[in-house]
Amino acid sequence: MKVVVIGGTGLIGSKLVQTLTEHGHDAVAAAPSTGVNAYTGEGLSSVLSGADVVVDVSNSPTLDDAAREFFESATTNLLTAEKSAGVAHHVALSVVGTDQLAAQSGYFDAKLLQERLIAEGPVPYTIVHATQFFEFLKTLADSATVDGTVRMPPAYFQPMAAADVAEGVAIAAVNAPLNGIVEIGGPAAVLLPDLLRTALTAVGDSRAVVADPQAKYWGIDLGERTLVPGPGASLFDTRFEDWILQAAAKG
């Protein structure tokens, strides 16, 4: 099976290409650095020739309202090129809670637009909703730091390792299109401040982490379980404690 991975050189994309290749598929990493740009359309017709599946794990270069133009253009270009190439399955990575987050966030509103374009488009599809990645916990803490203190709402989330995200997307890619959404997440729901405190302590970061009901998540007021996948989600086994030890061992 030929699988073209848009965003195939990034954190998730590179792991996805490796996973698919190890399972005997012809996985092609497509990114601006390889001459393929979904936003402009450059290189799409060539790289999609003979492709069975296209997986889009690319992301907007910004997390604000400008993301709308990126996702609208890139998704439209991809679906048009896929239809011309006879691609049988479009898989896209999105975020658990996107529909609830969209009302307060230009970025998540753009992700919701991406999902609607896919659902209304000409190619059978599967949208994979993933939870937050362990790899981004420090970035999340940085975004919520005020005067040296991390302030996070006491809401639950269910983060997962990037390698498990890639595995979940790979499973979706090799299976038949769902023409719907599948959710994936980590092994357990935990409070945002609690895990961020553990994450920072593990790397010797002395910032205090405070549970603050008035604090926001990327500027968004969270419900208690907005970031937690619902019943029927596929949950992966890697715990944060094990992941951080593995990350430390790799140096």
Rank of each mutant, 00 (worst) to 15 (best):
S143H: 12
N179T: 01
A30P: 12
M1V: 03
V4C: 10
L137S: 04
F157R: 00
D205N: 05
P122E: 04
G230W: 11
V54M: 11
P124E: 03
E224T: 15
S49M: 12
A85W: 00
S105F: 12
T98M: 13
G7E: 14
V53W: 07
P154S: 09
L191V: 07
D237R: 06
Q104Y: 03
V36N: 02
P229Y: 14
A141E: 11
L20T: 03
A130Y: 01
D99H: 12
T34Y: 00
F134T: 14
L44I: 03
F236Q: 02
I181W: 00
F134C: 08
K2I: 06
L101I: 14
G10V: 09
V47C: 04
T201L: 14
K2R: 15
L79M: 00
S45K: 15
D142W: 06
A189H: 08
V55K: 03
P124D: 12
K15D: 01
I181N: 13
H25M: 12
S60N: 05
E120H: 00
S60G: 01
A85K: 06
P124G: 08
A30Y: 09
L235W: 13
G8E: 06
S45R: 09
M160A: 04
N59D: 03
G186S: 09
V174P: 02
L227I: 15
E72W: 08
M152T: 10
E135A: 14
A173C: 15
V47A: 01
D164C: 14
L16M: 07
L196G: 12
A51T: 15
Q246Y: 08
G86A: 03
F70R: 05
A199I: 05
H23R: 09
V95L: 11
V128C: 13
T75A: 04
G43V: 13
A248F: 10
L101M: 04
V95S: 07
V128Y: 13
V96I: 02
T226I: 12
G185R: 05
F240H: 09
A211Y: 08
G8Y: 01
A163N: 10
D194Y: 11
A188Q: 08
G50E: 14
S46I: 13
I6A: 04
S73I: 05
I118A: 00
S143N: 04
F133L: 07
T75Y: 07
L196E: 02
V17W: 02
K111G: 04
T21E: 01
L235F: 13
L195F: 14
T126E: 11
P124M: 05
G223H: 03
N77H: 12
G24T: 03
V182W: 06
L79V: 11
S105K: 03
A81P: 00
L16R: 05
E82I: 02
A88T: 08
G106H: 04
L245W: 02
G251E: 07
V165R: 05
L196C: 03
H89C: 08
V55Y: 13
I171H: 12
A189C: 10
R116I: 08
H25K: 02
D237L: 15
K250T: 11
L93A: 03
R197H: 10
A27H: 09
S94K: 06
F108V: 00
V228K: 08
A119G: 13
S143Q: 12
